[in-house]
Nucleic acid binder design. Sequence first.
DNA 1: CATGAATGAGTTTTCATTCAT
DNA 2: TATGAATGAAAACTCATTCAT
Lengths: 208, 208, 208, 208
Amino acid sequence: MKKTTELAPKTIAKRNDILRFSLEVFAREGFGNTDVQIIADLANVGKGTVYRHFGNKEQLFLATAKFSLEQAAAYVTKKIGGEEQVASVIGQHGATGLLRMIGTACAEYYRRHPQAVEIMIQERAQFRESVFPTHLMHREETRGGIDDIVAGAIKTGEFRKVNIAEVTTAYADLLYGSVVNGCLEGTKSKLVKRVDAALEIFLAGLKK
Amino acid sequence: MKKTTELAPKTIAKRNDILRFSLEVFAREGFGNTDVQIIADLANVGKGTVYRHFGNKEQLFLATAKFSLEQAAAYVTKKIGGEEQVASVIGQHGATGLLRMIGTACAEYYRRHPQAVEIMIQERAQFRESVFPTHLMHREETRGGIDDIVAGAIKTGEFRKVNIAEVTTAYADLLYGSVVNGCLEGTKSKLVKRVDAALEIFLAGLKK
Amino acid sequence: MKKTTELAPKTIAKRNDILRFSLEVFAREGFGNTDVQIIADLANVGKGTVYRHFGNKEQLFLATAKFSLEQAAAYVTKKIGGEEQVASVIGQHGATGLLRMIGTACAEYYRRHPQAVEIMIQERAQFRESVFPTHLMHREETRGGIDDIVAGAIKTGEFRKVNIAEVTTAYADLLYGSVVNGCLEGTKSKLVKRVDAALEIFLAGLKK
Amino acid sequence: MKKTTELAPKTIAKRNDILRFSLEVFAREGFGNTDVQIIADLANVGKGTVYRHFGNKEQLFLATAKFSLEQAAAYVTKKIGGEEQVASVIGQHGATGLLRMIGTACAEYYRRHPQAVEIMIQERAQFRESVFPTHLMHREETRGGIDDIVAGAIKTGEFRKVNIAEVTTAYADLLYGSVVNGCLEGTKSKLVKRVDAALEIFLAGLKK
DNA sequence: CATGAATGAGTTTTCATTCAT
DNA sequence: TATGAATGAAAACTCATTCAT
């Protein structure tokens, strides 16, 4: 009969409710212009409740950013599939195919959830922290990790001998730049194409 | 008898003073956390003066961003040199060499002026406007233009046949991603290397 | 679960507190010279509370003016009495007596509450709206209405045949002029006499 | 060759220029919302010039009010004519005719110059001073004065025996009330009629 | 004298955070 | 626990007034 820090189901539901609206409002208004009251109203809770759950506005935002990131990661993970599928993709299309697929998955997600991009930018602007794609990629590591993919490709001779860390970093930077600029430029609709085109060149540069 | 857009020498000096401190404070504190009074104090002028010059906080920020961009552009332009020099570089190192050089120049500038990166991010966050590298590149166009460089390289057979616009976009995105992430990750010192490494791969992907 | 226009007892009390001091300060300082902070301090609430209740300074003022008017109307209404009493007065003293009585009641009220006059003037000056005496009279209409009184007096032959609307307007204008000028001239003490004297002439002009 | 406080012709012209625009702006915006800069701009002088001429904003306003009043008085005076004409009017139409004529003249002026009404109200609101119609009437005194007119009418038997001061006050109050309410109610066009109707009743009340 | 750039005191308004209920 | 009224610190912005040129 533990009365520990267990999480009551209703509590969790409320928390997620709040985060959902938090995401929406922070993305729309920006951190500075967001009134916590609005979020509370949308989530149909008192402002005090929001504060009890998250402590303060900054922590609410950070939780929101984490929440947003998790959703993106979940999408990509699901899209890419489990280890077997990853192995299968590499078998058929090589590391190139896999990396392209990951990029496309990211692009798809952000095209459909531009709010997530806004959140990333707000996070940077307010907290100059945690590089998003790193996060995303870190998630991906659980299923191979970009580093591993690159390392494998070098071993198989698909890629020329390059510094693995540099490649991973560059890959993430390219993804980040394409998504951020592409998404906010008002060309969301062409986001996937933009990322594809960029990766096509980049990945060609890794070929032997 | 109202004066037109005459430019009093002292006025301009004061204006630039304000912008210099503006840049510093906005970069350090972020747009939302900046108190215009602080800027006025640093610039040794009354708050009213700041407002008379720039109208309001947002316009002050935008003027600051423009100011920052111009400085970056000036640096790169100077670094790359005039048309002759550009031609010379292309002759010796190809378009690849030139694009790498531009990237390096950008990286150098932003490593030494990380404030400029902060401003870019703040601008995005507050105004979701004007993609910086595009701007920067647009400047560069006056001395060749990325498009022209790429087009030339395709003609000479240095680059394979690719969609020029896509290349330019990808190039700018990669630069943007590398600079922003590299700079704010606290690895400023390695910024040039990061950009170089990324461009090395990217440009290799354009080779025939 | 937002509350509708429920009326919390304490809330109303606080609201009226604020209005009372609002009236005092606005009357003493004028709209432009009033600092909302002063009102908040006097009412013993935070400035934010004032703003939560009334939105902004203008609305606070308007609410104050309404409040002031209601008090004046309540005074006059009470003084004149119900329909029976009105009928009785007309029976004994004619419409002349009733109109004189209303004028006197107004004068009495404003002599004792010169703040109400100030508020009227401030309202005019700032918002050029809502003619006060009309308002006041409109209230009075509920118990006969000046128009009705005049109409009745014409029917009974007490008044000569005149344009009813013109009479009502002139009556209100005379009252307004006497109260405003009398009150602010520093001759408050003689306000009742001033109104009486003016009405004596005016009403004589209506006799057959 | 006196270099005394003589008033240079140009200086006077400038002063009047300023007052003219002052009147316009104060009437349109109200005292509190008027920016002296606007007046200076319209008058095509530096702000400093305005201040050198009038000292400060309040004095500028007061000078404006005086200016406005003088214009009104000049109009009425001209309309009524000199002493001979006054005597002639009294001979033909009695004091009643003259007082009605004065009222009409006022009404005409204010209908055509509603700004003057605004100024009166602003003056009251900001300075709670100098009752306008008194001023106007005081001017009129130079040509007979309301008091004299009334006194004369009593002597000739045109008016019944009334307290002269009270009549004058009531007359001015009625005028004030009619003009102010009539003018700002948006019924400017009917202002003359409104005043006429009111005076008709009022003056009838003075008849023997 | 004329000017208008510079100033900073003074106000309005917002909103994160608290806490009594 | 949940709430939302109350708070007041914090900032943006204005504009009367001054004074160096």
